[in-house]
Nucleic acid binder design. Structure first.
Length: 289
DNA sequence: AAGCCTCACAACCGCATAGCA
DNA sequence: ATGCTATGCGGTTGTGAGGCT
């Protein structure tokens, strides 16, 4: 036994759909409804496998699909849901009306993922990546310069860590005392510097880890639903996860992908920056708890 | 102007799983 | 309980468009 051969082994058509094929599929589904995808192609007069028809309908032809650019709110929602659900694209799509899992997956891989990397956020763990802050070189340059520059170096470092993170609730402790991690890092750095040691990236990673987004959700991994229903709304209200890092940090980060593409300023990038800045402004206006 | 490169997105592939006999 | 089919899902690939040299 085993599975039936797929379309390529049955001599069925593959590749991009033509307008005529689309119309045949739409006509058939409007007339008879979807379902029974295996027999549908033959009945609809299509030389495609059922799987291909289902995908074409689900990802492109369905009338309730919202096409066009993702809004900033949608993007935020995707990031937040991804931090909770991971690569469960269908689960994420279920919470974004009119968007398909395939569309979200593509958008994640082509836009959001790169954006997060550029911001120094690991797109898998959603945690800030200290290994991409060029701390060693910052501190090396400090070592070769008068010691009076140390406060400036530390101030820059401090700016990487946004107090807004303090507002992230945890399920057990109420609010995370992020200042502890921040102070530990700073004091460890100061100790190292006073001992004439220049910390390597590896050394820096040994410091108290900055909590990942998932960790900020609370130590009980099964208790995420409460976060989604309660805290997620406050995140959506102008204070996004993407603003968890200080806006100053982006200028200090070394992007993992420094190809010229990211230096180009396109219209869409400008729009994104504009909306990002306005979001940051909203964030700064809101009172810190 | 032509060739090359990069990016975005549609489509495919193979595995997982639900449902049914 | 088992085997089979249909469908769902996530990772990957293919292709066309646009930009760059």
């Amino acid at each position: 036994m085993g599975r039936k051969p797929c379309c390529d082994k049955e001599g069925l058509k593959k590749g991009p759909w033509t307008a005529e094929e689309d119309q045949k599929l739409i006509d058939y589904i409007q007339k008879y409804g979807s379902g029974n995808w295996r027999s549908l192609p033959m009945k609809a007069g299509l030389e495609r496998c059922g799987k291909s028809c289902r995908l074409r309908w689900a990802n492109y032809l369905r009338p309730d699909i919202k096409r066009g650019r993702f809004s900033f709110e949608e993007e935020e929602t995707i990031i937040q849901l991804h931090s909770i659900l991971g690569n469960k694209w269908s689960a994420i799509a279920a919470r974004l009306p009119g968007r398909t899992d395939n569309e979200i997956k593509n958008y994640w891989n082509t836009h959001i993922r790169k954006k997060l990397l550029r911001m120094g956020i690991d797109p898998v763990t959603h945690s800030p990546r200290l290994d991409y802050f060029d701390l060693p070189s910052m501190l090396c340059s400090h070592q070769n310069s008068p010691l009076m520059n140390l406060p400036a170096v530390l101030l820059n470092l401090q700016n990487l860590l946004n107090p807004e993170l303090l507002r992230f609730p945890t399920s057990q402790n109420g609010f995370l005392n992020f200042n502890n991690s921040q102070n530990t890092i700073l004091s460890n750095l100061q100790n190292n510097i006073s001992d004439n040691q220049v910390p390597s990236a590896q050394t820096i990673n040994q410091f108290d880890p900055i909590p990942s987004f998932n960790e900020l959700l609370g130590s009980s991994s099964t208790d995420n639903s409460g976060f989604v229903s309660n805290s997620y709304q406050s995140f959506s209200n102008g204070s996004s996860f993407s603003t968890a890092l200080s806006p100053l940090s982006s200028s200090l980060l070394h992007p993992i992908d420094s190809s010229p593409t990211y230096l180009n300023s396109s219209k869409s990038t400008e729009d994104e920056i504009d909306s990002y800045i306005s979001n940051v402004e909203k964030l700064l206006e809101s009172p810190v708890l």
